[in-house]
Simulated scan of single mutants.
Amino acid sequence: MNYKFEIMTQEQAEEIAHNWHYDGEYSFYDMEADEEDLAEFLDCKARGNSMFAVMIEGELIGFFSVSQAADNIYDIGLGMRPDLTGNGRGTEFLYAGMEFVQSRFTVDKITLSVATFNQRAIKVYRKVGFKDMDTFVQDTNGSTYEFLRMVYECV
């Protein structure tokens, strides 16, 4: 697939925030599930140049955030359109995002955090070479959840 990464527009942010709804336990990832996260996602100044819309042939299929955590260490966040999840496309999507980060920045490590219940995503991350670092708990979506922090060592 030919993925294109572009700075997210307000229209794209609103589409994701208000129309992307995930099934079952994955509804945790609905932008509307947490008021603070929603407000930040919809604020173009807060998004700045760190949130990217992921397109294929002009169609919005996901998003990818990139922020510098330390020298040559970048933290990523990502999401695929709900109808595209669970169909074996995650590995290719993740690789495309990692290639994008490495082509844009000088990167030694890429980190990410994922809710520990999301074994489907954790399996993808481990498959591409992310290693477990540690776990932490965070208040979000009206409760407290455990997250796994993972790291990918770039060669």
Rank of each mutant, 00 (worst) to 15 (best):
M1P: 11
M1C: 10
T9K: 11
E14W: 08
H18C: 13
H18K: 13
H21Q: 12
G24D: 11
S27A: 12
M31L: 15
A33S: 15
A33D: 08
D34L: 10
E35F: 12
D37I: 14
A39Y: 02
F41W: 13
L42A: 04
D43Q: 08
C44R: 14
K45H: 14
R47Y: 05
G48M: 10
S50N: 14
F52P: 04
F52H: 11
F52L: 08
A53S: 15
V54H: 02
V54M: 01
M55Y: 13
I56F: 02
I56K: 14
E59V: 15
S65K: 07
V66E: 05
A69R: 14
I73G: 00
G77M: 00
G79N: 01
M80T: 03
N87M: 15
N87A: 14
N87E: 14
R89F: 15
R89D: 03
G90E: 06
G90S: 07
T91N: 08
L94W: 07
G97I: 05
G97K: 05
M98H: 06
Q102T: 15
F105Q: 04
T116F: 03
F117I: 03
N118T: 03
Q119I: 10
R120Y: 09
K123I: 01
Y125L: 06
V128C: 01
G129V: 03
V137P: 00
V137H: 13
Q138V: 08
Q138I: 09
D139I: 12
S143F: 12
T144H: 05
T144E: 15
E146D: 07
E146M: 04
M150F: 00
E153R: 01
